[in-house]
């Protein structure tokens, strides 16, 4: 176990624990945007900055990437930390004035108005969608293109992707609801990724419920009985309830 102090409070954590988790263990809340438990930390949004004191030197670092060390002294609420975090949020708010999660953070931090010219983007470039698509789904459909101020998340050639399975994990992990997905009868349309996918209909109720490509992808990854992929979740639930009913009656 490693012992460190955060805002003067002592905490012991296992080796390999990030400062963010150590702080959470103490009940200290550190805001995050580009962090998610399920994927590797990235350290890009800089909203989770903390101050780490090392001898006479102190420096800002992202708590989501910084590993706890023995004897480490961390400040999560120093004026330097708070000023930096606030400016990060203000910069992101100027970029995406309509993003609810950013607006929320800004309110909590007491940011009144943005001092920069407003843009009308929706994506804060946290890269969660990219990491989920690569690390969890293992599809690697989207990624960062260009660099600097022109950086964007995109599909290759900004066009329909052959490898997108339409699972929508990117959209569900996005903190700013920037990834638009809609369904129209037998199609799932991933507007942001210029991609349209055919849906499969449920063997029981006939409703279109899952992109055919996602099913193929799942079949490759997981070994399960074939018919489990043929029925929509609703029908599965129903049939499962039925079965449970049977079991119960049988038991009596």
């Amino acid at each position: 176990m490693l012992n460190l102090t955060i805002d003067g409070k002592k905490v012991s954590v296992e080796k390999g624990t990030t400062v963010l988790h150590a702080a959470r263990k103490l009940g200290i809340e550190i805001p995050t945007l580009c962090y998610h438990e399920g994927v590797s930390p990235y350290g890009a949004c800089r909203v989770c900055l903390v101050e780490v004191v090392k001898g006479i030197k102190t420096g800002l670092t992202t708590s989501c990437t910084c590993l706890a060390e023995e004897g480490m002294e961390v400040k999560s609420d120093s004026p330097r930390v708070l000023e930096s975090r606030k400016l990060m949020v203000e910069l992101l708010l100027a970029r995406c004035p309509e993003a609810e999660k950013v607006k929320d953070l800004a309110r909590k931090m007491g940011i009144e108005g943005v001092r920069f010219k407003r843009e009308d983007k929706e994506c804060i470039l946290c890269g969660l969608c990219v990491r989920v698509c690569q690390e969890i789904i293992e599809a690697s459909v989207i990624g960062f293109i260009n660099r600097g101020a022109n950086r964007e998340v995109e599909t290759p050639f900004q066009a329909q992707s052959d490898v997108c399975i339409g699972c929508g994990a990117c959209s569900s992990v996005c903190p700013t609801e920037a990834i638009k997905i809609k369904e129209m009868f037998d199609k799932r349309i991933l507007e942001t990724w210029h991609t349209e996918l055919e849906l499969k209909s449920c063997k029981i109720c006939g409703r279109y419920f899952v992109p055919k490509k996602e099913l193929e992808h799942l079949k490759e990854k997981i070994e399960l009985p074939e018919d489990i992929f043929e029925i929509c979740t609703d029908c599965k639930r129903k049939s499962l309830t039925g079965k449970i009913g049977e079991i119960k009656t049988g038991a009596i």
Partner: peptide, 8 residues
């Protein structure tokens, strides 16, 4: 390698 990596 994934096409997106090449394009990136």
């Amino acid at each position: 390698v994934p096409l997106i990596q090449v394009y990136s």
